[in-house]
Amino acid sequence: MSDLDLLKYTCGRTDLSLICDLIDPGSSVLDLGCGDGLFLRYLKERKNVRSLGLEISAEKIASCIANGVPVIQGDLDSRMEFAADGDFDYVILSRTLQEVRHPENLLDEIVRVGKQAIVSFINFGYFEYRFELFFCGRMPRGRHLPYEWFNTPNIHLGTLTDFHTLCRERHIRIVSAEPLGRIHGILPKWCWPNLFAHSCVFVLEKEK
């Protein structure tokens, strides 16, 4: 992959370049729902990480193998039997938490197998979604929610405030939070992230 391709790849995804910046060179990374593995390949080339992807689709696994990214099959609602506590420096969960059956169990798992977990979370409290629900009386759709209510894989939508509450209840410490806005990417923390951030990248770890 050339630098130009890599640039193109992360261009549309501010959260991915943010995640990349958070990762120390030479560390070990588990990417949950890694798709075709291009992001892990990007991380490997940029940060020389030792990577592993977890993916459910056999087709995408074949793409990962073709991309030279180690991948194993698994679904995010099962316990990660393949990994011991703290096996990875980072576990990445990018815009997927809302798709699983038990997000709370998955959060427990990722801070168990990862020394740190990096979660990019879609904020359902984003003002555009509130507007759509309030004024149009419809379930929100949009750039990050391109589905109808009946066919959406996003079955557990929450707001940033909800996420904070859940982390507190599960004894998960939020090490850092980078809210992402529509226009300028990273949003200053003082401007009401729960209203103006469409998503947020959290770094989490287990409370000691």
Binding site: A58, I61, A62, C64, Q73, E81, A83
Partner: peptide, 21 residues
């Protein structure tokens, strides 16, 4: 196969695994 994969990963061996439907 999963038990095997777990043993391989425990040794940090580069491992790919797929269950084909």
């Amino acid at each position: 196969a999963r038990a095997l994969v777990k043993a391989l990963l425990a040794n940090h061996l580069e491992t790919n695994f797929c269950e084909i439907q």
